[in-house]
Structures are given as C-alpha cells and as structure tokens.
Nucleic acid binder design. Structure first.
Lengths: 179, 179
DNA sequence: CATCCCATGTAAAAAGTTACATGATTTG
DNA sequence: CAAATCATGTAACTTTTTACATGGGATG
C-alpha cells in the first residue's frame, strides 16, 4: 500500500503521467522508494478506480498519447490521514553490494578494492547529479508547500555522500589489514 | 538469489542456526538486507538440498532443538564466484517514513516535526546500539578475515548517524519555513 | 497472568520483477 | 543503423509478507 501513497504524494506536487512518476522514482527517489513502470501503471489504474485520482488523455503528434493524472479531493484527504495515522514501519534495504562487502574475507584484497572503486564511482555520480538538481531547483530554502521535496532531495545527497566517504574509508581499512 | 549468498556469507563466519541468522539480519544488517524468518528457513532447506550447506540437529533440554548449519566447500566456492562475477545491481530502498516526509506539505508543521522526532529517536537508538556492538567486537581494526563484518558494521553506524543529523536539519528547515 | 524468547516450519496472499508487446522520433 | 527516449500496458514468474501452528521457560 505504501506505493499508493508515494504516488499520491508525488501527484500533490503537480498533475503528471505514469511515465513521469516512474522517472521521479528512478532519479530523485532511489534512496527513498524503488518501483518499476509495470507496477506503477497497474497501481495508477487501481487508484483511478478507487476515486483517489482522475486522468485525462493528452493527445500528441509524433509521440505516443499520454494519461495525465490529477489527485482528487478524496485522494488528498486519504494521503494526509495516512501520513499522520499509519503506523511507522522500519525501513527495508536491499543492497546487493553490501552483501558482497560483508563477505570480503572470501575474496582477495585487490578484488575487494576493485569492487569498492566501482561502487564508489556509481554513488559519486548520484551525489553530483542530485546535488546539481537540488541547487538548481531550490536556490533558497523553500516554503512549507515544497518542504517535502526539498528535504528528501537533501536526504539523497547526504546518503550518497556518506556512501562515497565510507567506500574511501573501507578501501583504507582493507589496504592496511593483515592477511 | 541474493538472500542465498547473504546466508552463505554469514555462515563463513561461523556455523549457526536459522534463528541466529535471522537475529543477525534484524540487528546487524538492517541497512544492508532485510528478511523474515519464514523466508530464511525456506531458503536454508533449499540450500541444504543443493549441497551448499550441511546441518546437524542439536538436542536441547528445556529449549526447542535446533539445526546448526555449516557451509560446504561447494558453498564457499559458489559464494566467492558470485561476489566477483555477479553483476552489481543498484540498491533498493523501501523507507516508508521518507515517503511520508516527501509529502509533508499536506500536513501541518507541528505534525511533521513530531514524526521526525519519533524517527530520530528510532535511528539514534540503532546508532548507539551498533556503535557499542562494534566497539566491543572490534577494539582494533581486524585482519582481512574479519573485514567484511567490520566494514558493514561501520556502514550501519554511519547510516544511522547520517539519518539522525538529517532529522535535526529537517526539523530546523520546517520550523523556519514560511507557511 | 500476559507477553516475550527460543526454535522451526507451512500456507496463503500481496508485492515486486522480468519479459513481451507496440511504434514513432531522436541521438550517437 | 543500432540504441535510447517517450508512453502505456499485460502476463508469467519470483520474492516477500503475514498469519497460522506448536510449546516450554523466563520475565514483568
């Protein structure tokens, strides 16, 4: 059910298509919630049937037509209710690389360092990209209306930065460890 | 399949039961990989059938009997192979609270701050607990044999610390935001 | 006296992933 | 000329969650 509220939340920012919502998950919310386009399209159809959102077809020449979704009054009411009253659940992480890292003792030091180098690069790219987006989108701290977007962007930046720094630290630890 | 290798990795540290493995996921690996006991018991049974692990019953009086699993040579070989050659997948996060945070504009500033305060406390507890465990378990940087455990513990500490600091920052942002 | 801990499992339901499907336009 | 982007969807499959099941011992 959380996906439903994640989508409702994004639709309070502006009316948008399933495709755009998916892009936001991939680009701005990787450290918040992950989803796939097939899941999002399915959920949007259900949400529309439940009256939480409405849509209108936008006809385009050249590009495929698209469905622009708008949150309903009912949807906004349910969202606010959920945020305040739904019991908090612990986060769930699935980080394949950290599973590998937790077993670094079964591979060589040089192989471990190479894997860390690759992941560091990946996280550093995310860091730069998210930081750039946040600085362009919010040159100053925004009003309460945009706080949600602002603070989650900052979370992403801090997460990626923490990951990069940890990679550097871990490589040093491995280099200096006794065999 | 990643759960399988996560379990194999933990079994390289020492022979242990499904129950103990589940405790480790809950306590030491919350920011790495999450799983449930039902999934772990099922996977261990499959892994045993595939010859990746073996087990022996340990009979106990008073407490229920338990199955102690040990990684096989085959299992260790498959694990090392997987770590080096399995293609890296991007991490997948499911953080219900950050979904709520991303929609803070639909609730009041005071409600948002209360939610942040609760989550901050939760993360701070994890921070203290993980830090204590790491300092007790590794008074000094360990040899390569224990690097995996050491660096993932450090990751957990840094993650929880980052989360706590971000909560403080976010509360300030919300307090100072225009309505 | 209720709840938690230990310890293992099964079964049903929900959520999530991957592959298939279409097709014009743009980019390298 | 291959691949990526835009745009939506379905179907099969895998993974994950939740509930059910058992039962003694310890804790509050």
């Amino acid at each position: 059910m959380t996906l439903r509220y994640a989508l409702l939340g994004l639709l309070t920012r502006k009316s948008q298509t399933g495709y755009e919502l998916y892009q936001t998950f991939k680009q701005q919310l990787i450290y918040v919630w992950s989803s796939t386009h097939s899941q999002i399209y399915k959920e949007l159809n259900l949400m529309e049937k439940h009256g939480l959102i409405t849509y209108q077809w936008i006809y385009q020449e050249g590009s495929p037509n698209k469905k622009q979704y708008t949150i309903s009054y009912e949807g906004e009411k349910k969202l606010a209710e959920w945020i305040v009253h739904e019991q908090n659940r612990p986060l769930k992480m699935k980080d394949q690389f950290l599973i590998k890292a937790s077993s670094f003792s079964v591979i060589s030091k040089s192989e471990a360092i190479q894997l860390l180098e690759e992941v560091k690069q990946r996280e550093y790219d995310v860091y730069l990209q998210t930081k750039k987006w946040k600085e362009e989108t919010f040159p100053n701290a925004p009003s309460h209306k945009k706080t949600g977007e602002y603070i989650t962007a900052e979370f992403g930046i801090r997460y990626a930065k923490m990951y990069v720094d940890w990679c550097d630290w871990a490589m040093e630890v491995i280099k200096q460890a006794d065999e």
